[in-house]
Design a binder for these strands. Sequence first.
DNA 1: AATGAATGAGTATTCATTCAT
DNA 2: GATGAATGAATACTCATTCAT
Lengths: 199, 199, 199, 199
Amino acid sequence: MRQSETMLDTKDRILNAACELYLLEGPKGFSMRKVATRTGITPTAIYRHFDAKESLYQQVLRQGFRTFASYLFPALKGADPLERLYQSADGFFRFATEQSRFYELLFLSTDAPDEATVHALLRQEAGTTYQFMIERVRECMQAGQLKQDDPEEIAMLLLSVCNGFFGLYASKKFKSSLPEMRAKYDRMLERILAGIKTA
Amino acid sequence: MRQSETMLDTKDRILNAACELYLLEGPKGFSMRKVATRTGITPTAIYRHFDAKESLYQQVLRQGFRTFASYLFPALKGADPLERLYQSADGFFRFATEQSRFYELLFLSTDAPDEATVHALLRQEAGTTYQFMIERVRECMQAGQLKQDDPEEIAMLLLSVCNGFFGLYASKKFKSSLPEMRAKYDRMLERILAGIKTA
Amino acid sequence: MRQSETMLDTKDRILNAACELYLLEGPKGFSMRKVATRTGITPTAIYRHFDAKESLYQQVLRQGFRTFASYLFPALKGADPLERLYQSADGFFRFATEQSRFYELLFLSTDAPDEATVHALLRQEAGTTYQFMIERVRECMQAGQLKQDDPEEIAMLLLSVCNGFFGLYASKKFKSSLPEMRAKYDRMLERILAGIKTA
Amino acid sequence: MRQSETMLDTKDRILNAACELYLLEGPKGFSMRKVATRTGITPTAIYRHFDAKESLYQQVLRQGFRTFASYLFPALKGADPLERLYQSADGFFRFATEQSRFYELLFLSTDAPDEATVHALLRQEAGTTYQFMIERVRECMQAGQLKQDDPEEIAMLLLSVCNGFFGLYASKKFKSSLPEMRAKYDRMLERILAGIKTA
DNA sequence: AATGAATGAGTATTCATTCAT
DNA sequence: GATGAATGAATACTCATTCAT
């Protein structure tokens, strides 16, 4: 019992270090050696807990999803469906701007190291998020706050527009101050909603 | 004359190889050695034509933009503004799906090797695209085919939604057959336009 | 215990190889690859024991100083101060001629790889030697075997003349047989001492 | 005739560039490419004028000796032999401090690229200097300003002490301001001369 | 559960030089 | 008299990983 706790402990410390490192240096600077140093152990020791860089990377991803969830789920406290939808969009914005490395990792990264394994996880977790959005949209429709339509496609529309917005900023094609970004983001959302809200 | 042709030839062959390599292996696998091998020359020889990896990478980028332009600009042949806007969206779709690596490089990449230099170019070229979209939107408004609004923000909305759509697919969060994607893309666009077209 | 011995072993083997290499090929031919080959290991393996070429180089330097000390310090066994001074000069001569590469490295080299770090060490170690000479001179004065004067400046005078002597030979401007050199060296010293010895 | 002048011209321009480069960057940074760039020609073109790096390097050496001569020979204007000796020492000091790179190259360098060829030249030119000093010493003795002794050995003594002095500074073992150095240099010289001057 | 030692492949870049033109 | 193109060898260093202990 003690041992397995200690073990978990180290595993978590490694994972923590890995996340920190990723957040600090991005995918390029993410190396086993640096993770090990940051954890305070030997590179070799990592392999006790994760059988390859790949596996560790996957856990970092998972951690990213958890963080994302922690930004998104508080939206459930909103008073009514539309309010909850707005708050979801707000969570999305804050996650994208406050955790931009994670955002990129989850939503923009492309050079996935190992297609098969990683993406299974990714798709599943992403699916959860997607479901969340679908739910938000669906309840707006049920409450008559959004026009009747296919909730899935509307959710995707919303996700796309948000994701695309940050994609344009992340790849540095545009540059704005945070408040400017926020203002643009809000207006953009308003325009979309204008088309799908009930009159 | 012969010489300068030969020179251009090799330079182009290198650039071609570089593009191919990038398209095949992404940013991570993009190395001078591999480019050289693929070109059929010595790594050293590359430096006769490009003074650093950075410069070569930049040319690959530029090539990407040229390719993108070749997908986008034919839209200008459309009969009326709205038709041109639709065709632009079509060009965007085809580029994103047929040249997905380039698409990622131009629109989703994040870990650019040299912030200062590359992004100057990138922002400039991206700006051109952006201006193109703004023009398409503006002329729709002038022709009374889209509601009066800020053309810049509407353009950004459209770009975001398209970009985000492919971002979701590129990062492998979703998976569809091409025709399915296309259908979704079209419906999504229709929904957006529904909100901003004139009645 | 076995391990740490093995470790020390390899580290020492590397250092030995490094010294040999330096002694054979000078600063120009001193490369990690060659050191590795000479040690019988992979270049990479060196980095387990020395974190950069710089550090290894420093240890070679240090080894040089140790060797120098082993030539110089036996002079302390001399019967009286003047005898000890003579024996110091003898140690200097033998070091310069028997370990000429080390001599050059320590006393004539100029293109030190990393100014800041290396020279700190160098100056410190050189300082020790310098202090040693000052002490020899000082005790000669106290014993009335050298005229009263500033011990530091006399020590520097002696060091300079010895150093300069070998410098002329090291840069190959002169060429003599060893016994000729020795005879010249002794006469030169005698001349200097003639001016500073008590009557 | 025109052609050969032009040719000489380029050859000289290369040599000039080579000297500048050497003086600026030392032996380590001395490369054909940089020489070429600095001359404004192609690396290949250098081989029209110098058949290898080696040969060019040799000419740089020769230039160094010429420069040295230009510091040393004005001493001949001194009023009497001893004055001329003092002025020679002064020339030496100024050369060592004002042209320290050349000084190192001529008097301290060690990693001679090609033993056979270079050193022939070097020894010859150095011999000239040496002869010059011997002459200075000899005439002092003839004029009764220095004690009768072997002029060659006294010259060597003087050269050694000067050379050694700068050697200690050049290899960064000591550090002083220029005026301090000068003062030490003068006192050192005075001490030596005290022993060999006539009463 | 963790370490020390080592490997092999890979990274970008620099160098002196040659050859055909 | 000079160039453009290319080469082959070398440089220091980093990486993920394995193995014996």
